[in-house]
Design a protein around this nucleic acid. Sequence first.
DNA 1: CTGAAAGCGCTTACAG
DNA 2: CTGAAAGCGCTTACAG
Lengths: 329, 329
Amino acid sequence: MVTIKDVAKYANVSIATVSRALNKDDNKVKPETREKVLHAVKELGFYPNAIARSLHHKKTKMIGLIIQDISNPYYPRIVRGVEDAAQKHGYTVVLANVYRSRQRTQNYLKIFREKRLDGVIICGGGIVKNAEQDNFFKENIMSTVVIGKPLVDDLHSVQVNNFLAAKDACEYLINCGHKKIVTITGPKESTTANDRLEGYKAALMKYGIEPKEEWIIQGDFQYESGYNAIDYFPGIGKDKITAVFSQNDVMAIGVIKALRERGFEIPKDISVIGFDDTLFTASHGLSSVAVPVYDLGKTAMTILADLLAGNDVPLITTLPTKLIIRETC
Amino acid sequence: MVTIKDVAKYANVSIATVSRALNKDDNKVKPETREKVLHAVKELGFYPNAIARSLHHKKTKMIGLIIQDISNPYYPRIVRGVEDAAQKHGYTVVLANVYRSRQRTQNYLKIFREKRLDGVIICGGGIVKNAEQDNFFKENIMSTVVIGKPLVDDLHSVQVNNFLAAKDACEYLINCGHKKIVTITGPKESTTANDRLEGYKAALMKYGIEPKEEWIIQGDFQYESGYNAIDYFPGIGKDKITAVFSQNDVMAIGVIKALRERGFEIPKDISVIGFDDTLFTASHGLSSVAVPVYDLGKTAMTILADLLAGNDVPLITTLPTKLIIRETC
DNA sequence: CTGAAAGCGCTTACAG
DNA sequence: CTGAAAGCGCTTACAG
């Protein structure tokens, strides 16, 4: 591997000069000298060692991105948003799927710290309150931006108002004449799921409908839990249940599949509304609450870059959602 | 940031000793001394600087993963496979979406080189033959594994036999009685798409059917191109077209949507078969050729780790596909 | 078993 | 405008 020394020798200058010639902003080097250096660089195929540079600058120009599971269609666009913005600001992203495991999260946080990443973006329920992680963030070892609700105070975040969005969606159903509405929830630890659940309840209450225990069906944001939810429905039909508010799309697609297999027509027999509006909801004709996932990612990265540049950034940034009505309700 | 020096001072030993105590494999350090060091480490919250370590070892324990577009459902599981295997082998992955852009690919390759990543996995059509990239691989600057068909010789790869898989799928259609089959292709530069196209042709020819020009509809692996493909169909019905072989699922879901909107029933009026068997094909009841994407990723990373460990690895590893018949044909 | 020293490949204050 | 030198935070051969 060719080093700065080789270039210096080849160009007949000191390594200090090579360094200066390469860091453009520094115009304290004679044009001819720079030419010589640039020529040597090309000739030898020199690629400056970013590791050595990092050691000096104490910056790696890399950030970590912690997500729960890239194969959940909610995440890819977030990743894209983060990466596009990262690229724009000169950062490179290290990806970490933690599958909601505290262990894996901790492990990656440790690796990120050792590798001296400049910052980290944490997506969703990763940050379970817990001594060691708490320390990690409290000590402010790494600039951090959370996508979603941070469980640790003082962390910057970009969010969506899940409570209101869920409430709106459910109110829409109620205004369509539905009075008995089931909801399929996300995992218990998820604050996102929790907010959506509260929004559901609030909508019902607003219209004087008492949300029954049996209407709240525990899901986990996975397809199967939507598909199986039907087994827990307290019956389907005018006097039973006429609509389902699925707290994400994947589960909504699951219920729809199960519903159709049992001969129910949608929305004739029962309405379904999802959440997230991820890829393919359109092809399923699924009504859903659109979450601007790409922008969540992009904004999070932009905020992180700002933070790293020493700029002031508001603690919470909220992005708007949008109810999209298609064919399932 | 606390350094090895601080730990040494705190523990009253030299930094060499701290280093030795921390690199467990080195048992040339007295147990009591190690205790002292470990205590200091905990007390001070010391996290060894991997950057400094890398500078010495000339290894970063990071690999780059170049994919075309994470929001295409084909990729997330590959990424997962790569990351899981990477984690197992002690590597961390840097993600790069290049959107089939040669420019972006080149740019990332440069960054990877400067950051001294240990290796790189390239997914799909990224490697367009081209002087500079050619050099990159020829000079063997970074260990490389390609998922798909490498356009540069001598590169390790893990693949699937797209030709055979496509041929099998089309033969299946023919054996079901179809004689007039349309195919929707991927982008022209994609070798994957090309192999699938050849497989399609071969199947038809084998049964004495001459594949007509008009049966081959140019797509680009995106939903829209599937949805719009119908406009180029030479008519639908017994004497026109009775089946479509879509070269990926996303486009298949697009055609199905378009077909249904125009009142056609599937598979009664027309059969559809996709390729890849990515997420949600099941919920659409789409028949498809299952590509073991997770395993492609996992295997690629395993091979890369082997390469980096100096082991011998066969140049090409081929993984099996599987035709999965569901409701659309 | 432990320490002093050299080295990894850069950058930058300090002289000149 | 340019060079010699110190320093970033580690690891490891070399002595002892």
